[in-house]
């Protein structure tokens, strides 16, 4: 354990830990869009700017990519940082005018409207909310191992979608992308037996039916994937049941166990 100083407050940290994560643990608010504990720091959204006043590289840098080191001292809310963040928020407001998350942040920073031309595309699969933080691409590739979506193009023409803008053959429909998206840009819906990833070129994924009640509750490829990933003794029952039936099942087993009756499947 080492000690770092954030806004004059001493904090303990693991050596090399992301400073953003240290600050969050301490309840110090640093806005951040492209950071997720399970993923390697990416440094793209530039919202987590902090000023290093004592450390290896002094000056303004991003907290997510800043490694905690003994004696490191940073400030997170200097007037310069706040004004840079405000300007970045204006850029985001123009890029993702439909994002509530961005608008909420703008409000907190006292920004009424952006001075920049707003980009609105009526047919945007990401609902004019995407800020290209890359979390969906990274979670899909690095964590889920699917690699169904990726960046397309470069510069301000960059988009995120499936290759050739066609239904993906490898998307498991797990929805991890939608869960990590900081601006709720990714849309999908479940209708009866099918999940449709509306943002990903309408990729359709069959839903798995609960072996007890028959309700379609989770994408089938994802259920299979999860079963392969789990320990062999857990592979069978639990995931074939929908969450409701599963908890009922667990409760039933607990009752039977406590009453000493034989557990029947």
């Amino acid at each position: 354990m080492i000690r770092v100083v954030i806004n004059g407050k001493a904090c303990t940290a693991e050596k090399g830990e992301s400073l953003l994560s240290v600050a969050r643990r301490k309840g110090i608010d640093i806005p951040a869009f492209c950071y997720e504990e399970t993923l390697a720091p990416y440094g793209a959204c530039r919202m987590c700017l902090v000023e290093v006043v004592k450390g290896a590289q002094e000056g303004i840098t991003t907290a997510c990519t800043l490694a905690a080191a003994e004696g490191l001292e940073v400030l997170t809310q200097t007037s310069e940082i706040v004004s840079l963040r405000r300007a970045l928020i204006e850029l985001y407001l123009a890029q993702a005018p439909r994002s509530e998350a961005i608008r909420a942040l703008a409000q907190r920073y006292g920004i009424q409207k952006t001075r920049f031309a707003r980009k609105v595309r009526p047919d945007d699969p990401l609902q004019n909310r995407c800020i290209l933080c890359g979390l969906c691409v990274r979670i899909c590739h690095d964590v889920m191992g699917a690699g169904a979506i990726n960046y397309i193009g470069r510069g301000h023409f960059t988009e995120i979608n499936t290759p050739f803008y066609e239904e993906s053959a490898v998307c498991m429909g797990c929805g991890a992308c939608a869960r990590v998206c900081p601006t709720q840009a990714i849309a999908f819906e479940d209708i009866v037996q099918t999940r449709t990833m509306k943002s990903w070129s309408g990729t359709r994924v069959p839903l798995h039916a609960c072996s007890k009640c028959g309700r379609h509750f989770a994408p089938a490829p994802f259920v299979n994937y999860a079963r392969q990933k789990l320990a062999p003794d857990l592979q069978q029952t639990p995931l074939r049941l929908c969450p409701d039936c599963r908890s009922r099942e667990i409760a039933r087993k607990a009752v039977l166990l406590s009453t000493g009756a034989a557990v029947a499947d």
């Binding site: 590739h141 699917a146 690699g147 169904a148 979506i149 990726n150 960046y151 397309i152 193009g153 470069r154 499936t162 290759p163 050739f164 993906s168 490898v170």
Partner: peptide, 12 residues
């Protein structure tokens, strides 16, 4: 490699 990655490279 995932096709999405090759497609990404091809358009980058």
């Amino acid at each position: 490699m995932p096709l999405s990655e090759l497609y990404s490279i091809a358009t980058f």
